[in-house]
Design a protein around this nucleic acid. Structure first.
Lengths: 222, 222
DNA sequence: CGATCTTTTGAAAGAGGTCAATTGAAGTGG
DNA sequence: CCACTTCAATTGACCTCTTTCAAAAGATCG
């Protein structure tokens, strides 16, 4: 597993939000993952706790025949890989070149035993994931394609929009696998929103989006 | 809210698994809810922690136009209503006449502050919910109708089958809203499984099911 | 025992999926 | 640095799975 990892600053403990999370300084390295590379796999033993420094991560589950459901996108600032058991329940991959801060699981486990504050931090993270999962179940089970795409844009708008432009790190297939659709349906929904002047693409890339009418976009998201 | 509640043994602290959860005896009452009545509503302040003694509970979220997504069914032994924030994120209703044990939230909060064991118990419950939610997202986003119904039957088989018979407390609409389908599609899938001799209904009720071929049922669930 | 709720089943419609072709962007190696 | 290959996205045409609408039979409840 470490073979895939490209260590940047292995010896120097670096300051990060992970330290704040732990309540005290812990050994904390920076790793860089190339686009498309696996950070950890489903059923692999848990060794680290991760925080996205730059880039983007997708975590997903697969069915036997390859159908994929992306549970969440992890963007700069997000902490992921927090689990209570011994093994990961899903796979995490870098969507683009991604730098993460990581801390050994030992530190987290020790904190769980010792500090009540640290345990509460773990609890807060897991609760946050659960809340997101519940919202997403409602989307997956009961929303139409257009409502799903609108909800996705609103979610990403908060996280990714800088200077009025939303730069999506993921491709249409990733979005589709997040929303329980096909990439063609996602593309058609985006085109429809563009034709109605609710959004527009800028430059040559189809991943740079400007939201022109957030109010009407919200109307689509039930 | 208390108006709806029919208290059974208000004065007598009763022994239950909730006490084991708390690590020591706490005030613990038994309440009975008639079928269809609300136990708590979305956005209501959290006051209690619940454990199903008998019966069944559905917890769900609604869209503005009434579309419903059931997040989970809570069956005898299940603890529910555990949340980290101040208000509930969904509604819980008794599916049939249901008896629950409940303990005041104060106890839980105090335990969170004090005992690390109690906090770990809360963490274990929340982690369990998250794990279930992740599995369910894969089902909602990526499985076909037949696969969804097969997965539902396998899930309920473990929980509900006694003496070879699975007695479902919920109707077809509940199942549909759990699986992101319509009740007609659920009915058709069950008929299909019956026609293929994978299950059969017993008696006059359509909620008493005998699984005749679990191996082939598992084949349908990817 | 009548009224209401639940479930099944059929027929028709529709939302989203599949297949395919085209265009455009982005890496890659000579 | 540019041609070449590969990857990404759009769009059209068609198809199919699930939904919608409707009717009828069956179960349950007061």
């Amino acid at each position: 597993m470490l073979v895939r990892k490209q260590q940047i600053a292995p010896q120097r403990p670096s300051s990060s939000e992970l330290n704040a999370f732990a309540g005290h300084a812990v050994f904390c390295s920076e790793f860089k993952y190339r686009r498309g590379t696996e950070i950890f796999g489903e059923a692999e033993p848990i060794q680290y706790l991760y925080q996205v420094k730059s880039g983007a991560v997708r975590s997903y589950k697969l069915l036997a025949d390859g159908r994929r459901q992306i549970m969440a996108f992890h963007l700069p600032g997000d902490i992921f890989g927090v689990e209570n058991g011994a093994v990961h329940r899903f796979t995490a991959e870098a969507i683009v070149e991604t730098i993460v801060h990581l801390t050994g699981r030992q530190n987290v486990v020790e904190q769980e035993r010792g500090s009540a504050t640290a345990t509460n931090n773990v609890l807060r993270l897991v609760t946050g994931s659960l809340q997101h999962a519940e919202t997403h179940m409602l989307l997956l089970g009961r929303k139409t394609a257009l409502e799903k795409v609108a909800a996705f844009l609103i979610e990403m708008d908060v996280r990714l929009t800088a200077a009025g432009v939303m730069s999506l790190p993921m491709n249409r297939r990733d979005i589709a696998d997040y929303l329980g659709l096909t990439l063609e349906t996602v593309s058609r929904a985006l085109s429809q929103l563009r034709d109605r002047d609710i959004l527009s693409f800028i430059g040559q890339s189809q991943r740079q989006i400007v939201l022109r009418d957030r109010a009407r976009l919200t109307d689509f998201d039930q």
